[in-house]
């Protein structure tokens, strides 16, 4: 990131390759739409290059990046939250982060989760995605979302309770 601050393009490419899967995956889980996720991820990375000069390495870079992603996604979902379950096949068809495309059985197993997450309010969905899939600590989620840790925990409890009820087991 220090090199990116000096407008080093190659350093940016390294950074982009390292974090692009995390950003696109999170945006995809939040929006449920591959194209939308890619657009948001692109905007976020362009924003990273734009704000690079103001970056201060006090916190981990991932948190700083996720904060930017969070801003873009919040802005996007405030205007339009896509209908749940609209594009899981498209999502699964996008370039997988590693290995082969998922087998149909796995996609079938994932579909109720996809739909249940889509029915959650974006704020709750975001906390659940950060915790479950990004494995972020609650304090880090609070930093990224700009909420109190207590609020994040409350949202997580609500989200889990909702998922448990909503996903047929």
């Amino acid at each position: 990131m220090v090199l990116v601050r000096t407008r080093d393009y190659h350093a940016f490419v390294t950074l982009f390759d390292r974090y692009r899967a995390g950003v696109v995956s999170h945006a995809a889980r939040m929006t449920g739409d591959t194209e939308e996720a890619e657009t948001l991820a692109r905007d976020a990375f362009v924003e990273v290059s734009r704000r690079a000069s103001s970056y201060k390495p006090k916190a981990p870079f991932k948190l700083w990046l996720m904060k930017i992603v969070h801003d873009f996604i919040s802005d996007r979902l405030a205007k339009h939250d896509p209908a749940p379950g609209s594009d899981l096949d498209g999502l699964a068809g996008a370039e997988p982060a590693s290995g082969d495309p998922p087998p149909p059985a796995q996609i079938k197993q994932a579909r109720p989760v996809f739909e249940a997450l889509g029915r959650l309010k974006p704020a709750y969905r975001e906390v659940a995605c950060f915790r479950i899939f990004e494995r972020m600590a609650y304090e880090d989620i609070a930093t990224v979302t700009g909420e109190k840790v207590k609020t994040v925990l409350r949202r997580m409890n609500y989200a889990v309770e909702h998922l448990r009820k909503d996903i047929p087991i």
Partner: peptide, 15 residues
Amino acid sequence: DALRAYGEVTSVKGR
């Protein structure tokens, strides 16, 4: 398990 499956399905790096 279901969440793990969903996490794997949605782990994409974009086209």
